[in-house]
Write a protein that binds this DNA or RNA. Structure first.
Length: 425
RNA sequence: GUGGGAAUAGCUCAACUGGCAGAGCACCGGACUGUGGCUCCGACGGUUGCGGGUUCGAUUCCCGUUUCCCACCCCA
């Protein structure tokens, strides 16, 4: 038997209703902030991700689905292509390619699948779904303003509340600009050198490969050492420091609670200044439900105009997972089950179904070969509110037996009154 | 990529130290010929993930492999 490949999965009903619920809430909320949808290809030239996400990141170094395309002629070599591991790079590429800044398209969102070749785990798949939004534009459009950072954060708080996720926590930090980070990294290496020998084996490795990750260490014995390490906040230059303070002031003013976390670092090369993460308990090691930050130099590094931006990605798989227990009854059950009864009643039943569906009712249609008992069982199992019996007597009278399956109340309803009768409650 | 756990009916899970592979739910039929849910009865359902080994005999023990889960790495 052929099965779905490692790290991929089928999304089945009724869970798909939950996905649609999430996505339509997202579209509603984003619309209120004047975001518009963009759909970019799910594969791009490999170079795009290498240059934006960063050659040295794990994503690019070992987690991408990359292949060599066929050339135009059989003998010709094709270009290297990659399934997108994240959305920002493609959106910024489209922004540059279509000069979206000149068209005033500064607020974009995208919902779709991403691909990373990681070891699968709960809430971590090789094809996973992200909801992504970006504010990007020329500095003259205010895209560099702390007001944009704050607007994004407030929008996310609104979205999570709207989805019924109440126990979230917003963690906020600034990772500064490139210069700040270089100075900080240097200081961090120096500070680690004399103490790293007393730390856990993981930290000893991190100190060499990725010193920033030392801050993620959970070993209790290491905490006193980590507490004394330099923080990025001490290395922010004056513009970055002011920017971050203004972001906090606005977020505070609109009443969105947050925690400063100067251990919060981002893995992708292009991030600058504001970095944030919304977390949610009960998701195991994958407690981050969404994350994002500013990427002021990304457009230029891809050969585009100056276009500061800030964006985020929501892990939709995890979001849906955290919604699962709380969200019941998202599926719309049939308003009515039509039960044709006896040979030759199918056509009349089909006519009735068509009429009722045109009235925006959800209609399930049985078959004249079913015994009435079976029709009742099927209707009940489907969760229909009403069952409509289309038998010989009814067709002759042009009035149909309509029974409320919850109350057991049954009445004869003239054809013309059916939509109104069924549409009630 | 590393370490650990798991895999048995559509679903959730049993099966003692190696001895006929089972239950609940679901599904289908009947009791009940144009009236559901409840109840009762019956039927269906399996290459025990896959491949090899040990054994008279393997769901059980061993080796390999695949997938899922947990934790790393990393990240949304």
């Amino acid at each position: 038997m052929i099965k779905s490949v490692r790290g991929t999965r089928d999304l089945l009903p009724p869970e798909t209703a939950l996905w649609n619920f999430v996505e339509s809430a997202v579209r509603d909320v984003f619309r209120a902030y004047n975001f518009q949808e963009i759909r970019t290809p799910i594969f791009e030239e490999t170079a795009l991700f290498a240059r934006s996400v960063g050659e040295e990141t794990d994503i690019v170094a070992k987690e991408m689905y990359t292949w060599e395309d066929r050339g135009r002629a059989a003998s010709e070599k094709g270009q290297s292509l990659t399934l997108r591991p994240e959305a920002t790079a493609g959106i910024v590429r489209a922004y540059i390619e279509h000069k979206l800044g000149d068209r005033g398209l500064n607020k974009l969102y995208c919902i779709g699948p991403m691909f990373r070749r990681e070891r699968p785990q709960k809430g971590r798949y090789r094809q996973f779904y992200q909801i992504d939004a970006e504010v990007i534009g020329p500095p003259s459009a205010g895209s560099e303003s702390p007001a944009r950072d704050a607007e994004i954060l407030e929008m996310l708080a609104t979205l999570l509340d709207r989805l019924g996720i109440t126990d979230w926590d917003l963690e906020l930090n600034s990772v500064g600009c490139a210069n700040d980070r270089a100075a900080f990294n240097e200081a961090l290496r120096k500070a680690l050198e004399p103490v790293v020998g007393r730390m856990c084996v993981d930290c000893q490795r991190r100190a060499v490969t990725n010193p920033l990750r030392v801050f993620d260490c959970k070993v209790p014995e290491d905490q006193p050492i980590i507490e004394k390490l330099p923080r990025i906040s001490q290395f922010l230059d004056e513009p970055c420091r002011q920017h971050f303070e203004k972001v906090q002031a606005i977020v505070q003013a609109v009443g969105v609670p947050f925690t400063l976390n100067d251990r919060l670092v981002r893995g992708l090369d292009y991030y600058t200044r504001t970095a944030f993460e919304f977390t949610h308990g009960a998701l195991g090691a994958q407690n981050a439900i969404l994350g994002g930050g500013r990427y002021d130099g990304l457009s230029e590094s891809l050969g585009g105009p100056a276009a500061p931006g800030i964006g985020f990605a929501i892990g939709e798989d995890r979001l849906v997972m955290s919604l699962k227990e709380s969200a019941e009854g998202v599926v719309r059950k049939p308003d009515v089950y039509i039960a044709p009864l006896g040979a030759g009643t199918n056509p009349e039943a089909a006519r009735l179904a068509r009429e009722l569906r045109h009235h925006d009712l959800v209609v399930e249609l049985g078959d004249e070969s079913f015994r009435l008992k079976k029709s009742f069982e099927v209707a009940t199992k489907a969760g229909a509110k009403y069952i409509l019996i289309v038998g010989e007597n009814e067709v002759k009278a042009d009035a149909f037996a309509l029974k409320n399956l919850a109350t057991g109340e049954q009445v004869s309803v003239p054809r013309a009154d059916l939509p109104r009768q069924i549409g009630q409650n």
